[in-house]
């Protein structure tokens, strides 16, 4: 029972377990930190979103174009929804990125899945931001009296 046990990190790693050059980028740490920070903010933003849209007044029955126009008449709700869009999309995209990295074993599969993910994310964030910034209460078929 005198087998020598090397100290950890003494470079005695079987070559088949070596994972390529060590990255000095702090991207993964920042992504980890972002999940925690955005998570806390998202709890507030989403709870507020659910309370305002589903729990007050007549709840879901009140939802309509007029309801959205009424909310976005206020810069506070515009900012709320914009922050919600960006944080939720980035938080969700990073979560799905982690899941792809965990389960897609082939390099090409991982690259493809993440490519589709990133394209969808950019599309949804750009679309959602444009909708909030260019919102027109007098869009086609608007029921609002001032139109």
């Amino acid at each position: 029972m005198s087998a020598e046990i090397a100290a950890p990190r003494s470079q005695r790693i079987d070559p088949k377990y070596v994972r390529g050059p060590k990255s000095r980028s702090s991207f993964e740490m920042l992504a980890w930190l972002f999940m925690r920070l955005s998570g806390v903010v998202l709890v507030v933003l989403i709870f507020g979103h659910l309370i305002a849209n589903l729990l007050t007044g007549t709840g879901i029955n009140a939802l309509s174009f007029g309801f959205v126009a009424g909310k976005w008449a206020s810069p506070i709700w515009q900012f709320w929804d914009l922050a919600l869009l960006w944080l939720a999309m980035l938080h969700g995209t990073n979560g799905v990125r982690t899941i792809i990295n965990d389960y897609a074993e082939k390099h090409a599969t991982r690259a493809w899945l993440k490519g589709v993910l990133y394209v969808s994310t950019i599309f949804i964030i750009v679309l959602g931001s444009l909708v909030i910034f260019t919102f027109d209460p007098c869009v086609v078929n608007s029921p609002l009296p001032q139109c």
């Binding site: 309509s64 174009f65 959205v68 126009a69 869009l85 999309m89 949804i124 679309l127 959602g128 444009l130 909708v131 260019t134 919102f135 027109d136 869009v139 086609v140 078929n141 608007s142 029921p143």
Partner: peptide, 15 residues
């Protein structure tokens, strides 16, 4: 986000 984007297209389609 896609369903909400309809508010920018047509109010009755959104409804």
């Amino acid at each position: 986000v896609l369903d909400t984007a309809l508010v920018r297209v047509d109010a009755s389609a959104y409804d």
